[in-house]
Design a protein around this nucleic acid. Structure first.
Ligand SMILES: [Mn+2]
Ligand SMILES: [Mn+2]
Ligand SMILES: [Zn+2]
Ligand SMILES: [Zn+2]
Lengths: 162, 162
DNA sequence: TGATAAGTGAGAAGCGTTCTCACTTTCTGT
DNA sequence: ACAGAAAGTGAGAACGCTTCTCACTTATCA
């Protein structure tokens, strides 16, 4: 049965059961949630990504390092990371949610390179003047969604050169 | 067969076939696209909506005035209106796209009342200062998505009173 | 009025995401 | 170290919104 995969076949080869402890860098992404070999691998790939990615993107890169990691597992790991505040939804691409590492805890938004996926945080452009206009209309603004798209310096240079 | 519905059973009762001409107000929403009894009805309901709605919302209200209008027809009509620039996507609610009438042709964004769906246009809050910050990072901003959510004056008063 | 391109309704299909189930593994006391 | 409880896993089914397919009907225009 494919179900009977040993826990650390994914990372090491020992068949005894060592009390598993995981890299702190990976563990940090999941907050209080429980750790696993799959999640360690997923965390590494998330940290390797230069910017925004979809669940499928991630599942593909994970699949290059270990087989049999289910897509549902990737979705669950991403949900845990999001809950822990390690990643954030930064928009969408072709109907799939775009995610990216984001450790910041202050209010900000994201600027996504449409070519390479690089993400940079930008401060919220909604100043008092903008909100005043809404208030003038009688609206009380309670939340907002802002995503900027563009081309990063690296990709711009490559286009100029090519 | 349910397929054999007369063209104008939906609007009038004449069973002859008058050279059909449609209300200008309704026709305007579809631009150059072809007109039909269903689309006339759909356009009326769109114009009756105070603000944002989903495809299902619209299909429901249309269903109160005529039976047998397919959901696919509503989606196709909405696509035509969007192409004609008569409506715009203004966000999403519970996984469904939120649409609203929007005849403006200048660059602006939308503020949606989360209680009643009322939509008001707001001018783009991205000023030169905000874009300068992105440029400083090397990014060239090419597009952006902004949606504001809040509570309109009417709904705020109702909450205070109730 | 006839030809043609477009719209329609019902249901199937797509697609990203979530859920279910039986099983495995981590984690916390002791 | 050990046992028990709670959480994670993989495969595939299910889900919800949206789009497509097909046979048929209808608007539009010469
Ligand atoms: Mn960020
Ligand atoms: Mn508008
Ligand atoms: Zn780039
Ligand atoms: Zn309101």
């Amino acid at each position: 049965m494919a179900q009977a995969r040993q826990p650390h076949d994914l990372l090491a080869a020992s068949s005894v059961r060592p009390s598993p402890h995981w890299p702190d860098a990976a563990k940090a992404l999941y907050g209080p949630a429980r750790m696993s070999a799959q999640r360690a691998l997923i965390a590494e790939e998330v940290m390797a990504f230069p910017g925004a990615f979809t669940a499928e993107d991630l599942h593909r890169t994970v699949g290059r390092r270990a087989e049999g990691v289910g897509l549902a597992t990737v979705y669950r790991a991403l949900a845990a990371m999001q809950e822990a505040g390690a990643i954030a939804s930064v928009g969408e691409r072709d109907g799939s949610a775009l995610l990216a590492r984001c450790g910041r805890d202050d209010h900000h938004h994201h600027l996504v390179c449409t070519t390479c996926g690089t993400v940079v945080g930008v401060e919220c452009p909604l100043d008092h003047a903008a909100l005043a206009a809404a208030t003038r209309e009688g609206h009380l603004v309670t939340s907002h969604e802002i995503t900027l798209y563009g081309v990063c310096a690296v990709c711009r240079d490559q286009k100029d050169a090519g």
